[in-house]
């Protein structure tokens, strides 16, 4: 699904990622843990195609080189990033935004665009499944949302767009236990053979609800250690210093 080799990323002449490798097969769930400033968010941004970085190394998704592909086309090809800080867009209705986004993705997949009625039906089912208050959808996109609501909204979008590679950028930070469960639920109910997950997190907390196949430790722009769930548990006890 995702093949990253010797990935380097520089912004404002500062190298953030310094030769990172990661290999994710379909159906796998990887967790990347790391201290502040280790390059976690940069990795998420670079995978999604955010501009402003100088990049070298190999970046392949479903066997295709991503280098020249802009953000929106990556999204249409099935890369989804759940933002650490979802952006507020005043005046834009959440449900309209979702419909526009879904139809762009469907079009790229060669599927028929959904009309308003079937879209609303779909959205109703999913929000119920996730336990999200439907009223959220008639509000302006992320404007005045609480931290928890914003993250729930990201998970809702993930469910609706049905992407293949899902990157969660510290989706768990700052969440209360209920919102955390909603996020975990959303992820667990989406897991199947065709989808892969890359969960970026600072703490082990979320991994108690979402069981990863692999855990990597990111420090100073590189993966310094990889292992299984035990690695995360060990980190929780000893902290990052012991490992990196």
């Amino acid at each position: 699904m995702l093949e990253v080799k010797n990935l380097k990323a520089t912004i404002n002449s500062k190298e953030i990622l310094k030769g990172l490798d990661i290999f994710i097969k379909p159906g796998e769930l990887h967790a990347i843990m790391g201290p502040n400033g280790s390059g976690k968010s940069t990795l998420a941004n670079v995978l999604s195609g955010k501009t402003g970085y100088e990049i070298s190394g190999l970046l392949k998704y479903k066997g295709e080189n991503l280098e020249e592909i802009p953000i929106d086309e990556r999204a249409q090809k099935g890369i989804f990033l759940a933002f650490q800080y979802p952006t507020e867009i005043p005046g834009v209705n959440t449900s309209n935004f979702l419909k526009t986004s879904l139809n762009k993705v469907r079009k790229a997949r060669g599927e028929k665009e959904l009309d308003t009625l079937s879209f609303l039906k779909k959205i109703k089912v999913i929000s119920k499944e996730l336990g999200i208050d439907e009223r959220m959808l008639s509000r302006q996109l992320n404007v005045g949302f609480s931290g928890g609501e914003k993250k729930k909204n990201e998970i809702l979008q993930m469910k609706i767009l049905e992407p293949n590679l899902i990157i969660l950028d510290e989706t768990d930070s700052g969440l209360d236990i209920d919102a955390l469960k909603t996020v975990a639920n959303g992820v667990n109910s989406s897991r199947d053979k065709k989808k892969s997950f890359l969960i970026i997190t600072h703490y082990q907390r979320l991994l108690n609800y979402i069981k990863p196949d692999f855990v990597h430790v990111l420090a100073n722009g590189k993966i310094v250690k990889s292992g299984s769930m035990e690695l995360a548990e060990q980190l929780e006890k000893t902290g990052y210093r012991e490992i990196s």
Binding site: I89, P90, S101
Partner: peptide, 29 residues
């Protein structure tokens, strides 16, 4: 706002669609 553009792009909207959407939001009142 660059962040707003990035967010819309990441949800599959191209540059022009994103601009149109954000500007319409800006004009909503």
């Amino acid at each position: 706002n660059e962040d707003q553009l990035f967010y819309c792009n990441q949800r599959g909207l191209d540059q022009e669609e994103a601009v149109s959407l954000i500007v319409n939001g800006f004009c909503k009142d």
